[in-house]
Structures are given as structure tokens and as C-alpha cells.
Amino acid sequence: MKFAIALLAGPQDPSARTALRFAQAVLASGHQITRLFFYRDAVHLASQLVVCPRDEADICAEWRDFIQSNGLDAVVCIAAALRRGVLDEAEADRWDRPVANSGMPWELSGLGQWVDAMQEADRALSFGT
């Protein structure tokens, strides 16, 4: 079965961890993930500048490692990212900002990527509000 997963919750929201555990279970069960789409506050998961307290698990690093180790398609909504200051190199240059704080394995793109993912998947799920 093919799953498309949208995450709307930021790093501090328990839904971010629930979504990660679900995605891990999907792959462990032999299913596929057609796309992970990060929207609203979930775009903060793509920031390389988020620092977690030492006594907390680094959910941003966990998502990044999961995506990289499984070669998954991870799309960050560009409109939501720009509003929240999450920029890759191209957007930092485009908007004349001094630094980029996002990069591989994340791709900044539009909401149309989520629509495409839902059309390709057998099931679409979203986590967070």
C-alpha cells in the first residue's frame, strides 16, 4: 500500500513524534510512502537551526535521519516556510537573506506536491492541526 503523509505540527507538538512513528511503522510493514509533506508549523522540522534541550529527543534530527536513510521524498510547503523563516539556499538568495537554514533532504515546493502525492497514494493521512 502507498501512503502520503502530511504533517502540520511543529517540533514541540506530540503529533510530530506520532507521525514519525507511524511513518516508520509503514515502512517496517513493507508499505511505501509516496511523499511526506510538511505544512504550517511542521516546516520548522526542516530548519537546521532548531536546538533541543539536552534532556529531550531531537525530533528534527530524527525526521532528517529517517528521510535520508530511507531515501524519502520530503516536501516543505514553500509559502509556509517563507512565512516562518525557513529558507534553503535558493530562497535565501532570492529574498536577499544572509543565511539559509534548510537543505537536504528537504525540498521547498508548493501545495501542488501534496495534491500529486494524494493522487498517487492509496491512503493519505495528516497529523496535527
Rank of each mutant, 00 (worst) to 15 (best):
I78Q: 13
Y39D: 13
E107H: 14
H44K: 08
C77G: 05
A92I: 12
L111T: 03
W63I: 07
A25S: 09
H44Y: 15
Q32R: 09
D93K: 15
G71K: 03
F38V: 11
D73R: 11
L125R: 13
V26P: 04
K2V: 04
E89A: 15
A124Q: 07
L36K: 03
M1K: 13
L20V: 00
D58A: 04
S47G: 03
E62S: 10
G110L: 01
W95C: 06
D96Y: 03
L36C: 02
V75W: 02
V99W: 07
A46M: 01
Q68G: 05
G103L: 02
R35T: 02
L36F: 07
A81V: 07
A117T: 02
A90M: 12
E62G: 02
Q32C: 05
A57Q: 14
R123Y: 08
L82A: 13
F66D: 04
A80C: 15
R17Y: 06
G103F: 08
V76A: 08
V75T: 10
S102K: 09
E89S: 15
A9F: 13
A19V: 00
D73H: 09
Y39H: 15
V75F: 04
I33Y: 12
A117N: 00
R64P: 07
L72T: 09
I78V: 15
S109C: 09
A16R: 12
N101P: 03
E89G: 05
L27Y: 06
L49E: 13
L82K: 14
L20F: 08
R84G: 12
E120G: 05
A4E: 01
W106S: 08
A4C: 03
A117F: 05
R64H: 06
L36W: 01
S47K: 02
S109H: 14
Q119K: 06
S102C: 11
L82P: 10
R64T: 04
L7T: 03
Q119M: 10
G10A: 09
S126M: 13
V86M: 08
H31K: 04
G103N: 05
D93M: 11
S47A: 15
D88V: 11
G112T: 02
E89P: 13
R97P: 06
C52D: 07
D93A: 14
Q32H: 12
L49R: 11
D122L: 07
Q12E: 13
R94M: 11
R84C: 14
G30R: 00
F22Y: 15
M1T: 14
R94Y: 14
A74R: 05
T129P: 14
F37K: 10
L49C: 04
A121N: 09
V43P: 03
L27M: 06
G30D: 04
A23Y: 02
F127R: 03
P53V: 01
V26E: 08
G110K: 00
L108M: 12
Y39I: 06
E107R: 15
V26H: 08
Q32L: 03
A42R: 15
T34C: 12
L72V: 01
D41E: 15
L82F: 03
Q119F: 07
E120M: 14
G112S: 06
A61E: 10
V50Y: 04
L7C: 11
V51M: 09
R64V: 01
A19F: 10
S102N: 11
G110H: 00
K2R: 14
P14G: 05
L72K: 10
I59E: 06
G85V: 00
A42H: 12
D96C: 08
R64G: 07
E120S: 11
Q68A: 12
A80K: 11
T18W: 00
A42P: 08
L7Q: 09
D55N: 11
